[in-house]
Design a protein around this nucleic acid. Structure first.
Lengths: 241, 241
DNA sequence: GACTAGCAATTGGTCGACCAATTTTTCAAT
DNA sequence: ATTGAAAAATTGGTCGACCAATTGCTAGTC
C-alpha cells in the first residue's frame, strides 16, 4: 500500500524559481547579456517575498549563470550553453551518485594525480607529502583510524601534480567518498597498516620521478576499494542508509 | 607607484562570516554534530543583520559542511575532515585555474568517459549520441559555430559511460572550458569540420564496443587543444583578461 | 536643436519584525 | 519525587520596509 505514494518534491521555493529562470534561459527567451526583470517584479510574479528570489539569483550566480550588478540589475552571464540542462538543477548532487561511480572516478583522478606528481613534484612537494605520511603513520601506529590524515596524503599528491583542476575535483568528491566509507564501514582494522606501506611505495615512486610506476602504485592502492564497490554494485545493492 | 597598492578584498560580508565559521570547524572548536549558535546571536556577534548570517549558512550548507534544521538549529554535518582547509573557501573557483590544468583534466575525464561508454553503452545511448552528432553536423554545414552542440555530444558520451560522477565533474568544468575557448579564440574556422569527422570516429568505436580505440580517438580529438594549452603555458602567459 | 545639470524613479543591498514549529521550562497532579 | 501537560522562550522561515547607488528623464541653457 505504501508503494502507491510517490516521493514528495522537497523542492524549496528558491529551487522552483531558479528552475523557472533556467528554463527561460534554456528556451532562449533569455539570452546572455539580457537583463532580468527586477527582483521585486519577479517576487510579485512568483507570489513570494523577495528573499526567495534573491536566494534563487544567488544560487544561479554561484553557478556562473547570472551576474548581479548592484543598483543596476541582474544579467545573464553564461554562454547560451545548452548543456546547462541538468547541470544547474542538481549540480554537485553527487550524493545521488552510486558508490561505484564515485570510486571509479576517484581512482581515475588519483592515478592521474600520482602520475603527474611524479613528473612535476618539487622538493617542497616531497616534504609536504612526507609530512602527511608521517602524520598518518603516527595515527596508524596508535591503532587509530586516521581517515583525515589518509586523505591529506592524497591531497598533497594532488597539489604536487600542479594541476589545480584535478585537485579541485578531488576535493569535490572526497567528502562523498568519506561519507560512503563511513556508511559502508569499509575501513576494516589492519587495512590501515597495509595502506601505510602502499603510501610509502607511492611516495617513493613520486620521489624517484617514475610516473608510470607511481600511477600504477596508486591504482593498486585503490584496487581493493574499487573491487569492493563493484561487488556492491553487482550484488544486492546496499541501501547505504 | 600604482604597484604599491594591494588588491582590495572584495570579500562579501557573507564570505567573511562563512570563513570564520569554517575556521572554527577547522580549529576543532566546532565538531561534527555540534549545534551552532542561533542566527540571531551570530548576527549580533558579527555586527550584521541576520540576512548575511543566513547567506553564509546557506553557502556552507551547500558545501555539505552544515546542516540546518528548521526550528531547531544548525549543526556541523561534515566529517571533521582536515582537508576542508582550502576546500570551502573557494571550492569551484576553477576560474582561478590555469587553462592548461583545465584542458589536461578534461582530456582525462573525456578519455575515460569514451572508454567506459564503449563498454557500457546501450542502444539508447547510441541513438542519443547520434542525435547530438547530427545536430552538430547541421550547425557545421551551415558554417555556424555550434559550440553547444559540440559539448552536447561529449555530454551524451559521458551519460553513456554510466558513471554519474564522471558526468557531473565534466559538467562542472565544461563552462570554464567554454569560457576559456571564447576568451582565447581557439575556435578557428575549419576546426569544426575536422572535429565532425573525429566525432564520427569516436561514435563508431563506441558503437563497436572498442573501449581502447574509443578512448584513443577521444584523446586524438582533444590533442590539438591540449597542445595549444601547453603552448600557452610555456610561452608567455596570456592574461585572458 | 544639442547638451548638460539636476531631479525622480528604479535598482539591488540591508535590516528588523512577524510567523509557525520546536524546544525548554514550569508547575501541578499523582 | 516523578511525570505529564501546558505555557513560555527560542529556533529558523518569511516578508515587507528602508537605504544608497545607479539610471533615465526632464528641463534649462547655450
Amino acid at each position: 500500500m505504501l508503494e502507491n505514494f510517490s516521493e514528495i518534491t522537497i523542492e524549496s521555493p528558491a529551487d522552483k524559481i531558479s528552475r523557472q529562470i533556467r528554463e527561460l534561459i534554456l528556451s532562449g527567451q533569455l539570452k546572455p547579456g539580457d537583463r532580468l526583470p527586477p527582483e521585486r517584479k519577479l517576487a510579485e510574479k512568483f507570489g513570494v517575498g523577495r528573499t526567495y528570489v534573491r536566494e534563487a539569483l544567488q544560487k544561479l550566480e554561484f553557478y556562473g549563470i547570472l551576474k548581479t550588478q548592484p543598483q543596476s540589475g541582474t544579467v545573464v552571464a553564461g554562454m547560451g550553453i545548452t548543456a546547462l540542462e541538468g547541470l544547474i538543477s542538481d549540480i554537485l548532487q553527487l550524493e545521488n551518485s552510486d558508490f561505484a561511480s564515485l570510486v571509479e572516478t576517484r581512482v581515475l583522478l588519483e592515478t592521474q594525480a600520482a602520475t603527474l606528481a611524479a613528473k612535476r613534484r618539487t622538493p617542497e612537494d616531497l616534504i609536504n607529502i612526507q609530512k602527511a605520511l608521517d602524520a598518518y603513520q603516527e595515527k596508524v601506529l596508535r591503532e587509530e583510524q586516521g581517515v583525515e590524515e589518509d586523505l591529506m596524503f592524497h591531497l598533497k599528491i594532488a597539489e604536487a601534480s600542479k594541476n589545480s583542476v584535478l585537485k579541485s575535483l578531488m576535493l569535490i568528491i572526497t567528502p562523498d567518498i568519506v561519507n560512503s566509507f563511513i556508511k559502508l564501514d569499509i575501513c576494516k582494522a589492519g587495512r590501515f597498516h597495509r595502506a601505510l606501506e602502499e603510501h610509502q611505495i607511492i611516495l617513493d615512486h613520486i620521489a624517484n620521478q617514475e610516473p608510470e610506476k607511481a600511477g600504477a602504485a596508486m591504482r593498486v592502492h585503490l584496487k581493493d576499494v574499487l573491487d569492493y564497490s563493484y561487488t556492491l554494485k553487482n550484488g544486492r545493492l546496499n541501501g547505504t542508509d
